[in-house]
């Protein structure tokens, strides 16, 4: 599903965020990316979401070489993945329904289909009935669940999450992690970047953890046999 091969990422200011990183993530796997702040976790996610391109090396996602993907094909690629952020990135002046529907609107989904899928996504994250509320009327945990619903509404095969529990208390964080695990259980590949090592330890059963430090892999890169959890969706 995802393969990083000797990936180097150097930013215009000269900082080298990744120094020859190689790892593999199989389809349907749930992987934690962990490490200290500045270790390179977010850069890995940026490369997967095609927010950045590698300076050197190869990033393959579902067989696509992202470094060589033409700019005009980036929107279509992004429509095939789901992204969850620590700060939710919700449109605060739009109701929950519109926020969750956004990827479907962008993809040109018919209105009836959009309505059906938004309600299904909200049901999955336990927010059905709150579709007319504005994000500001929701708790932090609920806002994060809206962000997750938006990420999964178009049924992506890959879900990447950048510090999805960073702003949440312990109970809400556990709730969000259970939710992500449920998506993995139906075959979605889930990559979670977090610096919360305790959270990782609580949920790493059956999951793999890739540890990054100063732009280098410190463990879990996939030398060990990959779990075969590729379920059909």
């Amino acid at each position: 599903m995802i393969a990083f091969d000797h990936v180097v990422k150097r930013y215009p200011n000269g900082r080298e965020a990744l120094a020859g990183v190689s790892f593999r993530i199989a389809a349907g796997e749930m992987v934690f990316l962990t490490g200290r702040s500045g270790a390179g976790k977010s850069t890995v996610l940026k490369l997967i979401a095609l927010i950045e391109r590698p300076t050197r090396g190869t990033v393959l996602v579902a067989g696509k070489n992202l470094g060589a993907l033409p700019s005009r094909r980036i929107p279509a690629y992004r429509r095939s993945i789901g992204v969850v952020f620590q700060d939710h990135r919700l449109l605060m002046d739009r109701p929950v329904f519109d926020n969750v529907a956004l990827p479907l609107i962008v993809a040109g989904s018919p209105l009836k289909e959009t309505d059906k899928r938004v309600r299904a996504a909200l049901d999955q994250v336990g927010l059905l009935g709150k579709e007319r509320m504005l994000p500001l009327e929701l708790s932090a945990g609920e806002q994060q669940r809206v962000g997750i619903a938006r990420a999964v509404v178009s049924k992506p095969t890959l879900l990447i999450c950048d510090e999805p529990t960073g702003n949440l208390d312990r109970d809400l964080a556990v709730e969000v992690m259970r939710l992500l695990k449920r998506f993995q259980n139906v075959g979605v590949t889930v990559v979670v970047a977090t610096h919360d090592i305790h959270l990782v330890q609580e949920h790493e059963s059956g999951q793999r953890t890739i540890v990054l430090d100063d732009g280098r892999i410190q463990g879990g890169a996939g030398e060990e046999p990959l779990p075969s959890i590729v379920a059909s969706r």
């Binding site: 929107p75 279509a76 992004r78 990135r89 956004l102 990827p103 962008v106 993809a107």
Partner: peptide
């Protein structure tokens, strides 16, 4: 700007 970033992130093209 923030809204545009989100729309692009979920796959909105420049034309959209």
């Amino acid at each position: 700007r923030a809204e545009i970033e989100v729309v692009k992130l979920v796959g909105g093209s420049n034309a959209f």
